[in-house]
């Protein structure tokens, strides 16, 4: 029977175990920080590339940041049928690391704008974290993860 769930596209995703291990990073931007040189990382690293220390502690990075560079992807990707572009950006988080992320609720030039409508994202736009559906894993479950949208709350 036809169901509202998305089909399981045949994208090779990593094993469910890897997706499960990385979930705190995807949901809440949990990175880590070098205890010796205080450098923050996202995603988590096992060795600090600067001082080669292996003592890193987990930290939850701030859910806010600024756009470094924004662009649109018009590649016809499966699982994105009917979307003529996917806006994405490099976001510099308030804590330092940069994330390559998709954007939501932004003006892609095709939506009707108007009052309260989607905003155009440029360099320096403040954005905030939202959790959205990324895809379905090859084994079936939904994979949720971070996307960003123009910041609402102060």
């Amino acid at each position: 029977m036809w169901s509202p769930t998305e089909p399981v596209y045949r994208i090779a995703t990593p094993t469910p175990a890897k997706a499960w291990r990385s979930r705190d990073g995807r949901y809440r931007l949990v990175g880590n920080r070098c205890e010796d040189c205080v450098l923050p990382f996202f995603p988590k690293r096992r060795v600090c590339p600067q001082c080669h220390s292996r003592s890193l502690t987990e930290t939850v990075l701030a859910p806010y940041g600024r756009v470094v560079s924004a662009a649109e992807d018009r590649t016809p990707l499966i699982g994105h049928v009917g979307r003529d572009s996917r806006p994405f950006a490099i976001v510099a988080l308030e804590d330092g690391p940069c994330v390559l992320t998709e954007l939501v609720d932004v003006d892609t030039g095709t939506d009707a704008g108007g009052e309260g409508g989607p905003t155009t994202v440029t360099e320096g736009t403040e954005v905030e974290l939202v959790v959205r559906k990324w895809r379905r894993e090859a084994s079936g479950p939904y994979q949720y993860g971070y996307k960003f949208r123009p910041r609402r709350a102060r």
């Binding site: 509202p4 089909p7 596209y9 045949r10 499966i78 049928v81 009917g82 939506d111 009707a112 409508g117």
Partner: peptide
């Protein structure tokens, strides 16, 4: 953001489209 009926139908998966499972 204003959405048309056609776009809403597609977004809310009211109709079964062609499922191209491999791109």
């Amino acid at each position: 953001r204003t959405v048309s009926y056609a776009a809403a139908c597609r977004q809310e998966r009211h109709f079964q489209g062609l499922d191209r499972l491999v791109g």
